[in-house]
Design a protein around this nucleic acid. Sequence first.
DNA 1: AGTATGATGGACT
DNA 2: GTCCATCATACTA
Length: 207
Amino acid sequence: MTEFKLLGKDFFERDALSVARDLLGKVIEVTDGTGCCSAVITETESYSGFEDKASHAFGGKVTDRNRVMYGEAGIIYVYLVYGMHVLLNIVTGDVGFPAAVLIRSALPKEGMDLMAERRFKKRPDQLTVKELASLAKGPGNLTKALGITMEDYGRQINKIYGQKSIAFIDSAYTPEYLSSKRIGVDYAKEWAQVPWRFSIRDGFSKF
DNA sequence: AGTATGATGGACT
DNA sequence: GTCCATCATACTA
């Protein structure tokens, strides 16, 4: 009998940096018509406020894509980059203040068969070591493995929509972590340098 | 209505 | 380290 509790709206109703850091070691669990899978969150990034040049909401910009960043905490903000990758964010903080946490990587926990099928059309025992290690590593790989799609846009976490739900589960695990520069935002100049990326210190990362 | 580009990932040198 | 697939979105006009 596993005791678990969902991370409520209050968890996400805080500043994006705290949420990003505290999300490390927590579990994301996705259920859809094909089944259920979960993974331990190992890497996140925060995007916060009007001044953050790396944020889609920089300068208070509002578009059809980024609109939910101004919404209530716990809303799912997904978008497509490079014409092919879906990236998962959770909105944080107060309504009207644009902020979100990007989930970049996770360690597969349950539902390996689903994740292996979605990523490589293979059974888990057919995966190479490289494939296994990269199952949910990287924001694009993570959403593909977990089955997160654009249809999840604007939905609330921990709620069921038809057969689909994206839940966040608490954990007593509070890992040592590292902070570093955010990835892929060099265009944001000085805002590309702020240490708003968080990752579990696993002893293997070279940071 | 035309164009530039990206909160990536994989292949390759 | 370099190249590039691929297309919705944001921006220019």
